[in-house]
Nucleic acid binder design. Structure first.
Lengths: 142, 142
DNA sequence: GTCCATGCAAACGGTTTGCATAAGG
DNA sequence: CCTTATGCAAACCGTTTGCATGGAC
């Protein structure tokens, strides 16, 4: 059996087509979509699926540790199927969000631990800037 | 005259008691309050002030660069009078937010720049963990 | 006196919830 | 069959907006 169905079974959860589709969509994209974006993307294939189901499924997947929620500073959340911690970069021009997989920042937890009496368990790092496309467009504007 | 009134004058803004009180409150606290918390804290002194004014004032102060908005992952925003970039730490137990002033992480922008074709302009770092009080309480629970 | 700010209430938008129906195991 | 998930609509909650009144300059 595959890991996913076992994980669902262990938690008394049903592996419905909607859940499968949402998780698969997240696995297959690098775009860190919002719930709304996922809903719109899957609508052609699952025209009866409701936005509420997308939200409920995302929360289920987060509890399972399969998905993480990002807070880039917009008014909504974005979602990422990779649950390991890794930095993200947000374009201030167009709002797109990318991973910076190669950048390894786990050591900053240890460093920060020296400066606080909190017991640090995790961290999130967001970079902000302009993506290649928006840089090009900015040059064009001048 | 003081810097604040000059800054307001330059921008054709009026330095009203409400604006003054909100900014002063933020300068005097380390608690990174939400708009609602600011509203409640000032209510005894400014009973007629509305929550809408708090929001409008905060946005004004952000535009002036006097205040920054934090996104700790809750459903609301928090505000900080120090506008220079510095890391924050969030307690997963009680939700309090503290600064980690001594930790200097500006160099990570340069490091990250090597791994992306974005033009990086800033970054935000959030640590998550348990504050001293919540650690103590957790021990008491067992 | 002019123009911007305040305060109220209503609107807004993303997210959650309640509940009857549908469908996975 | 039993139990959990779905889909719909309504509720929720933080934040924003429109507008008439009030106050800073």
């Amino acid at each position: 059996m595959n890991k996913l169905s076992n994980l669902f079974k262990e938690n008394n959860l049903k592996l419905t087509p909607q859940r499968y589709a949402i998780y698969n969509y997240l696995l297959g994209t690098k775009s860190h979509p919002s719930a709304e974006m996922i809903y719109e993307a899957l609508r052609p294939h699952y025209p009866t699926m409701s936005l509420a189901t997308v939200y409920k499924t995302l929360n289920t997947l987060i509890e399972l540790g399969l998905v993480q929620q990002l807070n880039v500073g917009e008014d909504n959340f974005r979602f990422d199927a990779k649950s390991e911690s890794h930095p993200h970069i947000v374009c201030l021009g167009c709002g797109r969000v990318d991973d910076i997989d190669e950048l390894e920042l786990d050591h900053i937890n240890q460093i920060a631990q020296k400066y606080t009496n909190y017991k640090i368990s995790s961290s999130k790092v967001y970079f902000y800037g302009l993506c290649a496309e928006c840089q090009a467009q900015e040059k064009g504007d001048r």
